[in-house]
Amino acid sequence: MRHTWRWFGSVDRVSVQDAAQAGALGIVSALHHIPTGEVWPTDEIGRRQAEVRAGGLSWDVVESIPVSESIKTQTGEWRNHIANWQETLRRLSAAGIKTVCYNFMPVLDWTRTDLRWTTRQGAKAMRFDRIDFVAFDVHLLERPGAAEDYDVETLQQARQRFHDMDDNRKLELSRNIGAGLPGSADGYSLPQLREHLRTYDGIDRARLQQNLVDFLTEVTPVAERVGINICAHPDDPPWALLGLPRVLSTAQDYAYMLDQVDSRVNGLTFCTGSLGALAANDLPAMVRQFAPRIHFVHLRNVRREEGRTPCSFYEDEHLEGDTDMVAVIAELLKEEKRRRVAGRSDNEIPMRPDHGQEILDDLTRGAQPGYPAIGRLKGLAELRGIERALSHSVYGLS
Rank of each mutant, 00 (worst) to 15 (best):
G56I: 03
L57Q: 03
S58W: 09
S58C: 07
S58I: 11
W59E: 01
W59N: 01
V62S: 04
E63Y: 07
E63I: 01
P66E: 10
P66W: 14
P66D: 09
S68D: 05
E69G: 10
S70Q: 13
K72M: 11
K72F: 07
T73R: 15
T75L: 12
R79K: 06
I82T: 06
A83F: 05
N84E: 02
N84S: 09
W85S: 03
T88C: 04
L89T: 01
S93I: 00
A94W: 04
I97E: 10
T99E: 04
C101Y: 03
C101Q: 12
Y102G: 03
Y102T: 05
Y102V: 02
M105D: 11
M105Q: 14
M105T: 08
P106V: 08
V107F: 14
L108D: 14
D109T: 05
R112P: 04
R112F: 15
R112M: 11
L115P: 02
R116H: 12
R116I: 01
T118P: 13
T118D: 14
Q121P: 00
Q121T: 14
G122H: 09
A123S: 14
K124D: 11
M126G: 09
F128R: 06
D129T: 07
R130Y: 13
D132C: 10
D132F: 07
F133Q: 09
F133Y: 14
V134G: 12
D137C: 11
V138Y: 12
H139A: 09
L141S: 09
L141I: 04
E142R: 15
E142D: 14
R143C: 10
R143S: 10
R143Q: 15
P144S: 13
G145A: 11
A146L: 04
E148F: 00
E148M: 00
E153M: 13
L155G: 07
Q156A: 13
A158W: 11
A158D: 05
Q160T: 06
D164A: 09
M165G: 03
D166F: 03
N168C: 06
N168F: 11
N168P: 03
R169T: 00
R169S: 02
R169K: 06
K170L: 03
L173V: 02
N176V: 01
N176Y: 01
G178T: 00
G180P: 07
S184F: 05
A185Y: 15
G187E: 05
Y188W: 15
S189I: 08
L190I: 13
P191G: 12
L193R: 08
L193N: 06
R194A: 15
R194N: 13
E195W: 08
H196R: 15
H196T: 05
L197V: 08
R198F: 10
